[in-house]
Amino acid sequence: MTADNLVIGGMAAFSTVDYPQHLAATLFLQGCPWRCHYCHNPHLIPLEAGDEKMTWQQAHRHLKSRQGLLDAVVFSGGEPTIQKALLPAVQQTRELGFRNGLHTGAPHLKLLEPLLPWLDWVGLDIKALPLDYETTTTNRHSGQESWAAISALQKAGVDFECRMTWHGALQSPEQVIAVGERLAEQGVRRFAVQIARSDQMLNDAIGAGRLSAKDKQWVQNTLTPFFETLDIRE
């Protein structure tokens, strides 16, 4: 398996938000084993790319032309770890001198672990407490390995933050607080609560799930003391 086999659904040539405090190019990889109700990139769920797909050769040429201008390359999705070609790709971006970032829900720990020596930062998506994952992902086998990824990242010394997407129809404020408290118990230092975007979702039937300013403030006030950084991202 080579990096040429990477199935890329799209690229953001310049991003200031995908890797904290770094300028990055973000590659969106195809494929995801989960079907999260609020997924706002449902076109990335199939492993096959659409007509506008980008090849790794094209992406690599673009990145090479941005050496010295960008700090990092972020691999996002979909769920990027399910592509075996990701490992040679992150090796090549490291050779180009870029930091490597990864956005992942870590559905399978065995797919994440070989990548760790080549990663500088990870945004780890935590959906819920382990026993509540199916409510969001519709996959009854999800959850345990995602939480186990926290220890794997800590042992590998990879910088990371945990993020949770909050949709009012799926999680109560109490459930978000419970996730935050569990993360703090496991030594997580940075936590971001992302408010779900309802303009484009895999399952529109769950509705907008609007959250009150009072509930958002309650979550922020309750969890802030547990973390070095706690962000509520709209």
Results as ranks from 00 to 15, higher is better:
K127D: 00
P173E: 10
F98H: 11
S142H: 04
L116H: 04
T224W: 02
D204R: 14
G31S: 09
D132Q: 08
I8A: 04
T165D: 06
K216Q: 14
F14R: 10
H37S: 10
D120C: 09
Y19G: 05
W121D: 05
V90A: 05
Q194H: 09
H167I: 12
L44N: 10
F191H: 13
N221S: 13
F75M: 13
R66D: 04
Q175N: 05
L27D: 07
P173D: 09
F191T: 08
E79F: 06
P20S: 06
E145P: 00
H167K: 10
G97L: 05
V176A: 05
A156D: 03
A85D: 14
T26S: 05
L183V: 09
L23S: 13
L116D: 02
A196T: 13
K64M: 07
H22E: 11
Y38M: 09
P46C: 10
E181G: 01
N5A: 14
T229S: 09
T26C: 03
L183Y: 07
L131Y: 10
T55G: 15
M201N: 11
Q57W: 03
P42H: 08
A192P: 11
A106P: 07
A208P: 11
Q91K: 15
A106D: 01
N203A: 12
P114M: 02
E79W: 08
R233M: 01
L23E: 09
G209D: 12
L63N: 10
A128G: 00
Q21Y: 13
Q57S: 15
M54T: 12
W166P: 15
A72T: 15
C162P: 00
H167M: 11
T137D: 00
H108A: 08
E79R: 07
D4K: 14
Q220T: 06
L170R: 10
R140F: 04
G143K: 01
T16L: 13
R189V: 03
F226K: 15
V122N: 00
M11R: 15
G157H: 09
L96A: 07
A3C: 11
A89H: 13
P88K: 06
S198A: 14
D231N: 02
E52I: 00
C39S: 05
Q171Y: 03
C162L: 04
G97V: 09
G78M: 06
D199Q: 08
E161W: 04
A12I: 14
W118A: 12
A169D: 13
G143C: 01
R210G: 06
L211H: 14
I177N: 01
L70P: 14
T137N: 00
V74I: 01
P46S: 11
T104L: 01
R140E: 06
T165Q: 06
Q171S: 12
P46V: 10
E161R: 01
S76C: 05
G77T: 08
E228I: 03
T224Y: 02
P117E: 05
V7H: 09
Y133A: 00
T135D: 03
Y38D: 07
V74N: 02
L109D: 01
V158N: 07
A205Q: 12
I206A: 10
G143N: 02
S212Y: 03
N100K: 03
G207T: 09
Q67N: 06
E145L: 02
Y133P: 01
L47W: 10
K155E: 02
A85F: 13
G143I: 00
A152Q: 00
V188K: 09
A169Y: 14
D18A: 04
D18T: 04
K84Y: 01
